[in-house]
Amino acid sequence: MIESTVASRWFRRYPPSQGRAAVRRLVCLPHAGGTASAFHGWADRLGGGTEVLAARYPGRQERIAEDCVTGMAELADAVTGALLPFLDLPVHLFGHSMGASLGYEVALRLEQEHGVRVAGLHVSARKAPHLVTPEPTYLGGDEAVIAEVLELGGTEAQLLSDPDLFELVMPALRADFEIVGTYRARPVRPLGCPVAGYVGDRDEVTPADLAAWADVSTVSFDLTVYPGGHFYLADQRDALLRDLAARIA
């Protein structure tokens, strides 16, 4: 078993609640422009010996001095490689928006290249990988990216209004919107694990978009719809974490 003191450049580790030993891991993959801190407190609410590994993408927070990644394949390769030392326990993946596509790509790489099936893939607010359409927002420059972020809401929209933080936030947003804008659909490549989907009922990503993730699993698929928009998980965090805890326990 990996010692709790082992550090990772790619993951911020949140130990299980109440000092319990970890018996499983939930790897959390942020949305475009998102950071690992979005998943602070999740381990305490999941309970039951779940350690949370929150992905730390380059170009933000502790990795602010590093160049951002601008391609999905490069990011998925890097996250997969960084995850290999943590496979001594069952691993679930949770990804929101861009992170959902990344979770699928990581699960594929683990299964097809390393012979490891994740225990579950949990995807939020994102079209199924065989239905995604390139989103050219990044081609419109900073103005288009900012407009999209403000429309969707979320923490990044608040940060953009602060002149002192603007230049710190924008490089990651530019890079992540390029990842989303160049990620293309391809024929279904199923996973041998359960898949669960989550979406807000007022999101531009619809429940039907999430339902198509059923084609990705050879095991099972469940869909849960919450009140809210693209960042429903801010207001519905407790309900979401109860559902996740039940599924991964």
Results as ranks from 00 to 15, higher is better:
Gly99Arg: 04
Gly153His: 02
Thr70Ile: 14
Ala147Asn: 02
Tyr183Ile: 03
Leu191His: 03
Val219Arg: 14
Glu51Tyr: 08
Val132Glu: 09
Thr155Phe: 12
Gly140Asp: 00
Tyr232Ala: 10
Gly181Cys: 11
Val199Met: 07
Gly103Gln: 00
Gly71Asp: 15
Ala175Ile: 02
Glu105Lys: 13
Trp42Gly: 03
Asp176Trp: 07
Leu152Val: 10
Arg242Lys: 13
Ala214Gly: 07
Phe221Lys: 02
Val216Gln: 04
Leu244Arg: 07
Thr5His: 11
Ala65His: 14
Gly33Arg: 10
Asp215Lys: 10
Trp10Ser: 02
Val69Arg: 07
Phe86Ser: 02
Ala107Glu: 02
Phe11Trp: 03
Pro15Asn: 10
Pro136Ile: 05
Ala82Arg: 02
Val79Asp: 03
Asp67Gly: 15
Arg247Trp: 08
Leu110Pro: 10
Pro30Cys: 11
Asp235Ala: 15
Glu113Tyr: 13
Gly141Lys: 02
Leu108Pro: 01
Ala54Cys: 10
Asp176Asn: 03
Leu83Trp: 12
Val216Leu: 05
Pro190Glu: 06
Asp142Asn: 10
Ile2Asp: 15
Ala78His: 06
Val79Gln: 05
Arg117Val: 00
Trp213Ala: 08
Leu46Gln: 09
Ala119Phe: 01
Asp162Pro: 09
Glu148Lys: 14
Thr137Ile: 12
Tyr138Met: 04
Glu178Pro: 08
Val27Gly: 01
Ala239Cys: 05
Gly228Trp: 03
Gly49Arg: 00
Thr218Glu: 14
Ala212Trp: 05
Lys127Trp: 09
Arg247Thr: 08
Arg24Tyr: 05
Gly103Lys: 04
Thr218Cys: 03
Arg202Ile: 09
Val118Ser: 00
Gly181Val: 11
Phe166Met: 08
Pro85Ile: 03
Asp77Pro: 04
Lys127Ala: 13
Leu83Ser: 02
Gly229Trp: 06
Ala196Cys: 05
Pro187Gln: 02
